[in-house]
Nucleic acid binder design. Structure first.
Lengths: 165, 165
DNA sequence: TTCAATGCAAACCCTTTGCACGGTA
DNA sequence: TACCGTGCAAAGGGTTTGCATTGAA
């Protein structure tokens, strides 16, 4: 999801032997992503670890958990620890740039919050997550809460199912 | 919730000094509750600990967690351990006589499954749980899952809110 | 009498935290 | 340079499990 392809500005046709140097340069000239800006707005430092995690999150389209995010980040840069992944995830959640989902008592799974609100259907066999959105359900939820005398702060709707065959 | 008052058959006006004996007798003559029958149908033994937990669950109307259930059961009979509470809760869940809810990554909370399906609104300030049911939402959920090519096995709808004032 | 169920404590899993060091602003 | 963020390992909270013992059937 979300094209974060590469805004990396590199001379085309650079010889392979210069890759390391180019990668280093790209760190400098790349324009800040929306998530990076959000972090800056939070007044927190933009460390190498956080940049890597941001990258991994932007590339993910499968709602990974903290462990999986660490695995991916660590494979890009071994200097990313699991503790930092957790700490950064909290910061990002606080900044509103990612959403945390606690499906069925399982470890929390994360996704970037760059798309409009939606709910989830979880495939019980594969763990796959399908996203959907229903205006009608959203409206009904608000009505119900109002009737019960509450203001909704947030809500969760999860469907657990098996693929029809 | 649910009247489990007492099907205990005891001579009325029994002197207080005989309470212990009467309690013992009531164990014998009390007719089995639906939950006890469900356990028997599962082919598991009906131990003292399980009877106590069943009792506590039947009396609860506040969606207690395992720890709280243990506290209550233990105050009735100190010979109920937390491990047994967890083990029995699993058995009961398997037998379909209780429902387990994992609200917001918090410890699981339980309720008897003797009433029709309903969803929950959680008061973010007090942790109170309000139950509700919406046929419309139920129907919409089924439609959505079908459109996505899935059969719903179960679902969760939780509203998190703050009391209006 | 048998073997499922128990209590206890240790183990588990996910997540958070204390501390001394390291790197961003 | 200041001090926030880090890695590491230890601690935390909820839940499960191995094992010898108990007790329901």
């Amino acid at each position: 999801m979300q094209m974060r392809t590469n805004c990396i500005k590199v001379k085309p046709l650079a010889p392979a032997s210069h890759l390391a140097k180019i990668a280093f340069m790209s760190e400098i000239v790349r324009k800040p992503t929306p998530m990076e800006n959000a972090l800056r707005d939070e007044g927190v430092r933009l460390t190498r670890q956080r940049r890597v995690l941001l990258q991994v999150l932007a590339d993910a389209d499968d709602h990974p958990d903290a462990n999986e995010l660490h695995r991916r980040a660590h494979s890009i840069d071994p200097k990313v620890s699991l503790a930092t992944v957790y700490r950064t995830l909290s910061v990002l959640e606080g900044a509103g740039v990612i959403d945390r989902h606690a499906f069925e008592g399982k470890p929390a799974r994360f996704e970037t919050a760059d798309r409009p609100h939606h709910d989830h259907l979880i495939d019980l066999e594969t763990g796959d997550v399908v996203e959907f959105r229903s205006e009608k359900i959203e409206r009904l939820q608000a009505e119900i809460a109002a009737e019960l005398g509450y203001d909704i702060v947030h809500h969760r709707l999860e469907l657990y199912g098996r693929r029809k065959r």
